[in-house]
Design a protein around this nucleic acid. Structure first.
Lengths: 103, 103
DNA sequence: CTGTATCCGTTTCGATACTG
DNA sequence: CAGTATCGAAACGGATACAG
């Protein structure tokens, strides 16, 4: 997507939710609560570490997830939804409903 | 997006609604009813004929819109939502709500 | 008016290997 | 474990011109 702002609220939302994998990442967080990097990698079939990393960063920059990193050994990280992220629940729910209607 | 099917309902929905402009095209139809090619071109700033054409075709193949073409002079076409398309209303609505919360 | 043909830069994707 | 580095392949996007 392009860099310059989108002033249509629907377009803005589509940029985030429409990027491949992001909807599934958010769904994981909504359904299961805080997740770690490896949790996503295991749950979302087909995604690689590069793409996962880039999506998480995008969601973090959009203020949808928060990253907590603990530099231990082994290192730990977990990702949690912000309030803004949590409010995407309705969108994810509607997408799931519709997607299930037309298999 | 890739060709092989997506079995996750959310992923399937994201492929459609996340492609650039599609959400706005569907919104036009939900808000204003049947539209013609030029209506979209006028209402959705920045979209070109190539992209508009390809999006409409995608939506048609997905069973979301129906295309009616009248080979007159000048030719006429109009696009209407199918029942399946109409049921995206909740998704669009949720996207609009969320997008408006975080300007 | 309603599109299609061309053509090409930009973005995205992702496998693999590797670091701390 | 939690990522980053690399780097080529593929998909996407879009301006312009043109056709029926």
């Amino acid at each position: 997507m392009e860099k310059d702002q989108q002033y249509c609220p629907i377009a803005r939302t589509a940029i985030i939710i429409g990027s491949r994998w992001t909807a599934q990442i958010v769904r994981e967080l909504i359904d299961h609560g805080p997740r770690r990097f490896q949790d996503f990698a295991d749950a979302i079939e087909g995604i690689g570490p590069t793409t996962l990393s880039s999506r998480l960063k995008m969601l973090e920059e959009a203020g949808i997830v928060e990253r907590h990193f603990y530099d231990e050994h082994p290192p730990r990280a977990h990702y949690v939804l912000t309030e803004k992220g949590h409010r995407m629940k309705d969108i994810i729910g509607a997408m799931r409903n519709w997607g299930n209607l037309y298999r």
